[in-house]
């Protein structure tokens, strides 16, 4: 063979090596402080719990069993763990409801902002970005103030004479849902806005000119073009909801725990590190399933529009 292909390949290899060197610091940091620790979590999930937290280096599948089952102390029979199943179902259910709630409020809001004249659009967008950049804990405290026993709603209802004594709204599923929908709402508005802004309204007008009904136009012209934004917004809300820790902790307390809080308990008072590790992997897998579903939805769509 001639020399030319070789030198070209050498140059390519040299370029690739140089690029790897450039990326090395970032890659090393993430390998050491994220990927390696996650591998340790996988390992810990198949060990035996130690007496005071930590683990003993004895192989055991008990941690994984305990994710869904509990063993009777007396006769060793297995039964489904109601407590864990409730928390698992609550995590998925509340995350889906949070996504639905942010869709109901977020999509019209994004539509509204995108259809303003440019100057007004910048103003409304600014109003969405402020809560987006505000500390999540601060925003959770703000919602808490609304529904506390002595909070805004209860005092308002008492003053109006609608109720005789405060309604207990905190530490319920409702409180967690309200808190999560409030803190994650901007995550829905921004991607949907980006999609609607790109929408060419002449397409919808063309639909009208051809006597399409409003609903038909919405369904057949607008929705397909805005769909990527809606899907992106849904995943941006669903994924952090599923792994939420701070908001359910403040709004739900010990009564309405989510998966994140259950995991934390295993490394605190509960002290069952292998179970905590197995739960962590379960949560991560749920998130990965959602992400894979998301990529398949979006890449499938692109395939169709090109075809």
């Amino acid at each position: 063979m001639g020399e030319a292909p070789n030198t070209e390949r050498d140059a390519q290899n040299a370029d690739a090596r140089q690029r790897w060197r450039l990326a090395l610091p970032a890659v090393t940091i993430i390998m050491v402080f994220s990927i390696l620790p996650l591998i340790v979590v996988v390992l810990y999930s198949v060990l035996t719990p130690g007496d005071y937290g930590n683990v003993r280096w004895v192989f055991s599948t008990e941690g994984w069993f305990s994710v869904l089952f509990e063993r009777d102390i007396f006769d060793d029979t297995l039964s489904l763990s109601d407590a864990h199943l409730t928390i698992l179902a609550r995590s998925v259910g509340l995350s889906l409801l949070t996504t639905a709630l942010t869709l109901i409020f977020g999509v019209p809001t994004a539509w509204f902002i995108a259809t303003r004249p440019p100057a007004a659009r910048a103003f409304w967008l600014f109003l969405v970005t402020i809560p987006f950049w505000t500390n999540l804990l601060v925003r959770t405290i703000a919602v808490q103030e609304m529904i506390r026993s002595e909070g805004v709603f209860n005092r308002l209802f008492l003053w109006l004479g609608l109720i005789d004594q405060p309604i207990q709204m905190m530490f319920t599923n409702f409180a967690v849902l309200l808190g999560m929908a409030y803190v994650f709402l901007p995550l829905m508005v921004l991607p949907v806005f980006a999609a609607v802004e790109k929408f060419d309204f002449r397409l919808a007008e063309a639909g009208y000119d051809l006597y399409a009904s409003r609903l038909f136009c919405l369904r057949k012209v607008i929705l397909p073009l805005v769909r990527p934004g809606i899907i992106a917004g849904s995943i941006l809300v669903f994924v952090p909801s599923l792994g939420a820790y701070v908001t359910p902790r403040i709004m739900g307390g010990g009564k309405s725990m989510m998966l994140g809080n259950l995991i934390e308990m295993q490394f605190g008072q509960g002290r069952n590190w292998p179970l905590g590790a197995a739960l962590s992997i379960t949560l991560t897998l749920l998130v990965l399933i959602a992400l894979i579903y998301y990529t398949r939805l979006t890449s499938g769509r692109q395939g169709r529009s090109h075809g």
């Binding site: 993430i30 990927i35 996650l38 792994g243 962590s280």
Partner: peptide, 17 residues
Amino acid sequence: IVNQPLMVPEIVLAIAL
């Protein structure tokens, strides 16, 4: 690899570390 920390819930990463 660079995007990996985004794909794992923060609570899991915190426990792992």
